[in-house]
Design a protein around this nucleic acid. Structure first.
Lengths: 204, 204
DNA sequence: TTAGGAAACACTAACCGTTAGTGCTACGGT
DNA sequence: ACCGTAGCACTAACGGTTAGTGTTTCCTAA
């Protein structure tokens, strides 16, 4: 458990980065399907097995940096201001994520993803994992006493919002419409006879 | 465009059915991953290429009969009683679909699906396609004047409901909770100043 | 009835993602 | 300085999938 920032780890990280950069460059140059793992390995000057030592699959090469997506969603819930209602906090984070994907630099990548079925499937799997993590974070919040099903449902709705907004022509407008619906869905989970604490503190 | 029920089509259908039956049997006997396409082809006494002439992928062998899922969802919208509100109609259909999956006969199959990542990914892809089809059906209904985003959103929510209910310990109770949320989300799409025709006719 | 043509199917051989097995090398902890 | 191990290479293979090619079968139109 030593925190050594040794040459070893630096080299490993460098190799990983080199592979990821090479892969992304080749994918964008020639198209995802037209580039084989063997091409990537050769161009990055590593063995095929080394590629798979760093990345679980070919698709993972594309989503290299989006590993923190899951943590960001969960932290938007666990790390929000005390008393701040859930949905606005979620929305703020998702808005940031959508903007991040819509950045000019990331656009060709997302175009490639939208054109490649294998990458879309992979992204859906990621989203499902993210939804599960988000549901766990929501369920763990003592301020939000909801059933497991309700937590899982609102988590799904939230990642749906991300996905739908990213595909929309006008992401900001889409987020408005979608979160009006998400907010209503969440409000409907409050049992009659319970305090509406989560809602009451609202109004920013 | 002849509707001939010729020998040819019967033979084709028979071959297809034989392949699907053989595959499902082998999968359940030995496990999905332990059975190769070559095994299925040999056992069904056809060539490997013939298998792929009938099914687009190995996973498609498992979901052979669920092709009509998409049509059922869309028809639940387009074919509902005039004046019947959208959400109850959707719920009725989804409830039926969930029950269909929970039938004793289908249980081992779903156990296999839940245990196999490749099958789960495939099913997610299917669900996304179904959501798109459902969104199109909702958008095409003149009684429901909603934006494209709202239609796509509620369609996603509906297939989420199916997915979540199927995984829940008590599907019926889960459907209650989830559809309370879906109903609220849909109600939130009504613009202030518009008639609430869709809601007003409700009550049964 | 028959000729034409297309669809279904078979077979071979390969491509591609992925993994197992094996071993070498270089670095870090002691 | 030494040893353990992590990183990496290499070969070979497995399993899903497809291309190319040829053959049989059977619908259809003359």
């Amino acid at each position: 458990m030593t925190v050594s920032t040794g040459r070893r780890e630096r080299k490993k990280a460098a190799t990983r980065q080199k592979i990821a950069d090479t892969a992304l460059r080749l994918f964008l140059e020639r198209g995802y399907e037209a580039v084989g793992i063997r091409d990537v390995a050769a161009e990055a000057d590593v063995a095929v097995t080394t590629v798979f030592a760093h990345f679980a699959s070919k698709e993972a090469l594309v989503f290299e940096q989006d590993e923190n997506f899951e943590q960001r969603l969960a932290r938007a819930v666990t790390g929000r201001e005390p008393g701040e209602p859930l949905i606005p906090a979620l929305r703020r984070e998702i808005e940031a994520l959508v903007r991040h994907c819509s950045a000019a630099e990331a656009l060709p990548i997302w175009r490639m993803i939208d054109e490649t079925p294998a990458l879309q499937e992979y992204e859906q799997s990621m989203r499902l994992r993210h939804a599960e993590a988000l549901a766990a974070a929501i369920a763990a919040d003592p301020d939000l006493a909801r059933t497991t099903t309700e937590c899982r449902t609102i988590a799904r709705f939230a990642v749906d919002a991300y996905s739908l907004a990213r595909e929309a022509a006008d992401p900001d407008a889409a987020l408005d419409e979608i979160f009006r619906m998400v907010e209503a869905a969440w409000a409907a989970t409050v049992r009659p006879g319970e305090t509406v604490a989560d809602q009451a503190v609202a109004s920013r």
